[in-house]
């Protein structure tokens, strides 16, 4: 499967899963399950930063169209897309791992811990920015923080389950031909 089709397929599948499965699960008003941003986390290492920002905007905007109030998820997605390259530079273990592997995964990040830190920070930023925008006029800080932390925890569990059910085999590519 060409890489572009793979990403389009993921895009559609994650949006549909988010809208029709996860949005119908009501755990608690403090913990909303989100998984659709896995699309951004799984984009390849060598993607152009401009393309990354625009793709993230389109992803967020698509979800917003289903929620009938545009802007919230698009803003959160653009935020994590902007932070992602810095975080990858900071977390990649050895020189050249981003050229050896195609996209971020437990294997290519060098273990479960760096991958979960990578996912955890991005998910936290996504949720914090999203709830901050949504809660523009509520002044309850305690509610905001507990909501952000609980939702992040639920999202991380979902990401772990997804990684476990759909293991992505990463080909080891060397840049020395």
């Amino acid at each position: 499967m060409p890489p572009l089709f793979k990403h389009i397929f993921r895009f559609i599948l994650l949006i549909l899963f988010q809208v029709f499965v996860l949005d119908n699960i009501r755990l608690h008003q403090l913990a909303t399950p989100y998984l659709y941003f896995l699309f951004i986390l799984w984009l390849p290492f060598n993607i152009n930063r401009t393309v990354l920002l625009i793709t993230a905007f389109v992803l967020g905007f698509t979800l917003d169209s289903f929620r009938h109030h545009p802007g919230f998820h698009a803003a959160a997605c653009v935020m994590i897309a902007y932070v992602r390259p810095f975080l990858i530079n900071f977390l990649i273990p050895q020189e050249g791992a981003e050229t050896n592997y195609e996209e971020p995964s437990i294997q290519s990040m060098g273990g479960l811990l760096p991958y979960m830190i990578y996912a955890g920070i991005l998910v936290f930023i996504h949720n914090a920015w999203l709830f901050l925008l949504e809660a523009w006029q509520f002044e309850n800080a305690w509610y905001f923080f507990s909501k952000t932390f609980l939702t992040t925890a639920v999202c991380l569990v979902l990401i772990l389950i997804t990684e476990w059910i759909f293991p992505r085999k990463q080909k080891f590519r060397t840049n020395t031909i």
């Binding site: 920002l53 905007f57 917003d64 802007g71 925008l133």
Partner: peptide, 14 residues
């Protein structure tokens, strides 16, 4: 700049 622009578009929508 693109990042700032996209964020502003989102806030405008909201």
């Amino acid at each position: 700049l693109l990042f700032i622009f996209l964020q502003m578009v989102c806030v405008y929508f909201i």
